[in-house]
Design a protein around this nucleic acid. Structure first.
Lengths: 401, 401
DNA sequence: GGTATATGTTCGTAGTGTCAACAAAGCGTC
DNA sequence: GACGCTTTGTTGACACTACGAACATATACC
């Protein structure tokens, strides 16, 4: 079983820092290529602040490791010797797994966030952990020849709608899957033979959105995702994910917005999730279920019926209350709304913005950006891949791969 | 004017990392001595994971820089050659400034958090920035001979009850001081000739408490401080302070706890600060004002009058609501209560604990620690010193000092 | 007093990035 | 098309850092 935590050879304070220098620089370089796309060596030199000799050596090492390759210079139109383009090797891939109530989505994502393949495997009922492992094993078995011939798998990332201890890949509680206190990363690692990590889906969506979507370049970000199963969240604070002591932080759907509200399954009353939710929208729309695109159509492309308008506005006002709290707590640069919250927002952006402004102290509300998530359906796959790439990016020359 | 931000010689991604290695190791070592107290070279070697030759060289360099010194080995009772004790030099000091409504407190704190001196300068009225600068200048002028003879000042740290942009040392709003959009670090730096930094007082208290108080060794911590002027907070997330994009994060007093509550000066309604506050306690106690020790006496040492008990319990219940939210958001290992919130808590610890347990999902509430702050009156002085020491600790061999 | 153990000290070595000099490759000008 | 200018890749000498082995030192234990 090859699972989780990269070994930390020495104790805390300091590393020997002579080979760690190289490790750090390789890591930085590969991360730049993976998150920033292909760049010339000259660009890398400037951005990293290293000498061009050093960049040359580092790129060579990454190429030797099979993690990067160079292509002929592009016509830049500038004077000077042309600089070759350096690419992260997109054939180095992560396998992603996203179990949901009615399907298991499996993805193959290369370095540079290249989505090679995605398979949605519909299930008759809500899948158990064992079924998930079996389905993933079967799908990958079918791809084995292709995988071995064309790709190099570095690990597996699992995005789970629930509370996950991302240190050991154990699910504490995933209400809509009915999973409780179950190891997930370990059995997958055993079955597949790849290092496997698992984390909360909203947190991974946050990572993806902050790297490749609306949150690019932002270091302090609050992400809120609305799905049929509730509201999840993720927070980027000072450039790193908020994890909490057990990895259960950023349960933003379970913060108080209405003291007179309904009781929530979490034990509290008047949580954001009980006040702002898809079911109430469906009720006024007179529908049983709805895809996100349909919801967009219904909320954006027509004059709304009065009762729909009222419910939309009510939910927006409550959402503003929650965002006001998050601004006090996190002072983020930007708030990103995904899932049905994105549709809700676009149904009346100005109402939400104005309400948030009212609820925030002075200039804070003025500078806050509110955006709809951009990545949509790719979000979770990209986020889960990021989880799987983590160890490789932290130590590109590390043993295992 | 020597103010704020340490120069960052190179760009972002990577540093050259060959001299930075030494910088990092010196920084780590000095930080270990400063936060962990005097230690033998052998202990430092083990904790840092470096070779003993290297530790020897680093300690010598710190000694040459005047930042550390060694004393004769203690009787350890162990076999082997005795290892000399290494101390951070407590004569290397930070000046701390803590302006408040009725006084300006000035402190002199050495490395190792040694409180050399503290002066409380009572003011007739709420001080302005200019008056604060004048008072501090005057007090330091009186100490100049002593300062120059015995100490080496590395900088000034200012703790301010309000919103501070800690990047440039500007106060956005300090309601109880009546300061608004005023630079504070810059004029102090000009007047004193020392590098000066300013930050929110509750945040600094969090730092102090996490290094030297109840939060020692904890990486995920929520600190709540109750004073006459409201409730401030600080959050340690993954070992580093939550700052937010402009440094205004962790305004935990301004989160919703009661939809039916009173309007708060921040623009919201039913904030924690409007529901849990000292004034309401004073009202039932029939007092106008009260020191913290007196409050402790009143709340802890007697059977409480029924109306006092009722108000205490109400405030505890509301506080639990807020803590429940913070647990969902931060998943902290521990919550630390300072100021009158500490007294409130100790008046009925079990009630708060039980209420929090009810409001948190499953095991989260079980493992959460709730503690009263330990540092009491020294808290802000130590915290502000930490702010001033920051640059030195980050780069002990750096030019300026 | 001798042995085992732990630690400080010294010096040669390996690894890392830098820097200067040179080579290569494009643009612009005449 | 030749020349200069600019930018960048390449190479090798160099400086800095930490490591490791060998030795010196200081304590406990027998």
């Amino acid at each position: 079983m090859t699972l989780t935590r990269a070994s930390r050879p020495l104790s805390a304070g300091v590393g020997n820092r002579n080979d760690q220098t190289r490790r750090h620089n390789l890591s930085t370089l590969l991360t730049m290529l993976h998150h920033g796309g292909a760049q010339t060596r000259a660009q890398l030199t400037r951005q990293a602040g290293l000498n061009r000799s050093t960049i040359g050596a580092l790129v060579t090492e990454l190429a030797d490791l099979g993690l990067a390759y160079e292509t002929d210079p592009q016509d830049s139109g500038l004077v000077g010797r042309p600089s070759p383009l350096v690419h992260a090797n997109e054939k180095v891939v992560a396998i992603t797994v996203n179990p949901d109530v009615d399907a298991i989505t499996i993805g193959l994502v290369g370095l540079g966030a290249v989505l090679h393949k995605r398979i949605r495997f519909e299930t008759a009922a809500v899948p158990t952990v064992r079924e998930t492992v079996n389905v993933v094993s079967a799908v990958l078995a079918g791809m084995r020849t292709e995988l071995e011939a064309q790709f190099r798998v570095v690990g597996v990332g699992v995005a789970i709608p629930g509370l996950v201890n991302s240190n050991d890949g154990t699910v504490l509680l995933a209400p809509h899957l009915g999973w409780r206190d179950e190891p997930v990363a370990a059995p997958l690692a055993d079955a597949l033979g790849f290092a496997t990590r698992a984390a909360n889906d909203a947190g991974l969506a946050t990572v993806a959105e902050s790297l490749y979507g609306s949150g690019r370049g932002v270091h302090d970000l609050v992400y809120l995702n609305g799905s049929a199963s509730g509201i999840g969240g993720g927070v980027l604070a000072g450039g790193s994910m908020l994890r909490g002591s057990q990895g259960f932080a950023a349960e933003l759907g379970h913060t108080l917005v209405n003291s007179r509200g309904e009781r929530c399954h979490c034990g509290k009353t008047g949580c954001l999730e009980t006040e702002v939710n898809l079911d109430r929208l469906l009720a006024v729309l007179g529908r049983d279920s709805l895809g996100l695109d349909e919801l967009d159509e219904l909320l954006l492309n027509e004059t709304l019926a009065p009762d729909v308008r009222a419910e939309v506005d009510r939910q927006l006002d409550v959402l503003a209350l929650a965002i006001g709290n998050f601004v006090s707590v996190f002072n983020p640069e930007s708030v990103v709304l995904g899932g049905f919250l994105g549709s809700l927002y676009e149904a009346n952006p100005e109402r939400l913005r104005a309400a948030v402004r009212e609820l925030t102290l002075g200039s804070l509300g003025e500078t806050l950006r509110i955006d709809r998530a951009q990545l949509r359906s790719r979000l979770l796959t990209i986020g889960a891949a990021e989880l799987a790439f983590g160890d490789l990016l932290a130590d590109p020359a590390g043993t295992a791969f």
